[in-house]
Design a protein around this nucleic acid. Structure first.
Lengths: 337, 337
DNA sequence: AATCGTTATCGAAGCGCTTCGACAACCTAT
DNA sequence: ATAGGTTGTCGAAGCGCTTCGATAACGATT
């Protein structure tokens, strides 16, 4: 393994000079710089990460805590994770992957050992047990998701309240009076995951304001659960003409069921999905949808964290504005007979 | 930040003694050990990762390279990644998440900087450009997937050849004579991803041996692509009564299309899927399937890597035996009229 | 009583890097 | 010409840990 000292010797300069060439923290003559850079290339030098971390008390690593649970829509998680890894690299950081498994201890371990300079937490719950620790250790961090109390924290998330409102608005504008919401699995609500509750809040508030009737039903993933849920909805509110789906794993089953029952989309029923664009465009009907901007969320989280690590940036709640894309699954409400 | 020296002072021993308590590399009297452990607890000491890595030239980190591409089925990737992270922790390692983006350079960087002690590569292509480097740097590593030349490498993968054979066998045994394979997206084959080609090989070989006709068609994800592909298949081989699907994103569209065309599963058409169990059980028809053992693959990869890092273990190709679970989507071939 | 082997502990060196202060060498202004 | 500033380089200290002798204390062995 090539060391700084070897590079220095090869280039005929002192070790500190090489270090300054690398970091750019002091001015170096063009001549020297070139000699050093040449030696680095010729010897194939890579700074030793451990030594660097020890001397500078900076690891250049960002920890990313992903949930262990898989009742969430996994591709979104993955997309965020990859976006985080990619943007982190662009800022000179590597990413350490932590699973929720360790729970709050992971925060303690990472903060205590200097393994990472900061952390990004995904799938934050309203009353997340990791938050007190985060505040106590004042570990630089960014949350993806919104807890109940955001004081002293930086959070990035889609504005789910606005998302809910947007969906209702779109349907109401088309004349739909009876709207049903097919939500996440009951467990998601029971766990008080912020995004689900905020969506619901946005949906209900706007529905009340616009005077449309709204029925919300959680739904497990899979075809059978969807069949049961849909039957219940149509039983309870036969006049339902607008559906809002916030559970990706149920989108295709829903469309299949509607087709099977002879309900045409969008002639008889309009469907709005809250899901990644890929799901919306690949479904058997092009779905009008509000996208979940996974990449954007990952990128923004990294940017805010890096800003904090650089001493810039402050606590802040960043809510990304939802965008509704009209595709083929929504249209005017059928005239009541 | 608490240091070893502070713990030593607090416990009234030397720094090296504390170190030996931590590592267990020399015998320590019960009395001293307890005093030290108590001090560690009271002070909330966490060894500094950088210093440890520098002194011991071991980072206790495993690098995991995940593909950047997302034309593969993402949940499987995620499941493997999480399994890797979880088992790594169980062995005292953390996981560094690298995206394919950097390509071969990542191997050089990680090997050169001592950032990680070893690496796990996912989504290995038949002629992967990272392999020469891996061999050259003799970086301890494990591949998930099988390249063309496995000499000097440790690989873990599902035995896709056997998987293909198993699917054909199952259908042939039920009397199906004309079988069609709905494969991954064309890009996957063009990239010479090992698993796709090996599956195909297994399918074809066994089909020849059993004397059944086999038609293979790649298929992009999504409903429309599936519709086109299915139409072509039925046009070319109207007698097709068995379908084998190796592209998870097309499973539900396929079932919807069959339903729509009045072809009953499994009465008219039998369907075997190669997919995670979750997909098979959540589909609108319980699918007979060969599972992709994502967790198992991640776990085994870590175990082999850790064995290598401990100086045990050797180069080896581990092929996990496929298991076919019969559910409701396969049955006897309809009698030819 | 002298010797040997254990067992438990300590001190010091060193891992490869960053960073601070020092110091030449040079370039301005007076 | 001289004081004062820049600019470019070096040496040394030190980051927190591991690890290698060395040593002291103590039984067990002759």
């Amino acid at each position: 393994m090539v060391t700084l000292a070897e590079v220095a010797q090869h280039a005929g300069v002192s070790a500190s000079t090489v270090s300054y060439v690398l970091s750019g923290k002091r001015s170096i003559s063009a001549n020297t710089r070139q000699r050093v850079e040449r030696s680095i290339r010729e010897l194939g030098y890579h700074p030793n990460a451990g030594a660097r971390a020890l001397a500078s008390s900076k690891s250049n690593i960002i920890a990313l805590m992903v949930p262990l649970r898989t009742d969430m829509y996994v591709p979104v998680m993955m997309e965020i994770a990859i976006a985080v890894a990619t943007s982190a690299r662009a800022h000179g950081y590597d990413v350490l992957l932590l699973t929720g498994e360790e729970g709050p201890d992971a925060v303690r371990r990472v903060a205590g050992s200097g393994l990472a300079d900061g952390m990004i937490l995904m799938d934050v719950e309203l009353d997340d047990e990791r938050l007190p620790l985060l505040r106590a250790t004042d570990q630089p961090s960014v949350l993806i998701g919104l807890p109940a109390d955001t004081s002293g924290l930086t959070c990035v998330d889609l504005d789910f309240r606005a998302t809910g409102a947007l969906c209702v608005e779109h349907l109401a504008k088309q004349g739909h009076q009876d709207i049903a919401v097919i939500g996440e699995a009951p467990a998601v609500y029971e766990r008080h995951t912020g995004f689900a509750e905020r969506t619901l809040d946005g949906l209900r508030t706007r529905a009340r304001e616009l005077g449309v009737r709204l029925l919300h039903r959680p739904c497990e993933g899979g075809y059978d659960a969807m069949a049961v849920t849909l039957a219940r909805i149509l039983d309870e509110r036969p006049g339902t003409s607008g559906l809002i789906v916030q559970n990706e794993s149920v989108v295709e089953p829903l469309l299949a069921l509607l087709r099977q029952q002879g309900r045409a989309v969008p002639e008889d029923v309009s469907v709005v999905a809250i899901c990644p664009d890929q799901v919306a465009t690949q479904a058997s009907v092009r779905l009008t949808s509000v996208a979940i901007p996974a990449q954007e969320m990952g990128r923004r989280a990294v940017e805010h964290l890096v800003a904090k690590l650089d001493g810039r940036g402050s606590d802040e709640v960043v809510l990304l504005a939802p965008e509704l894309t009209v595709r083929g699954s929504t249209g005017p409400a059928p005239s009541r007979s």
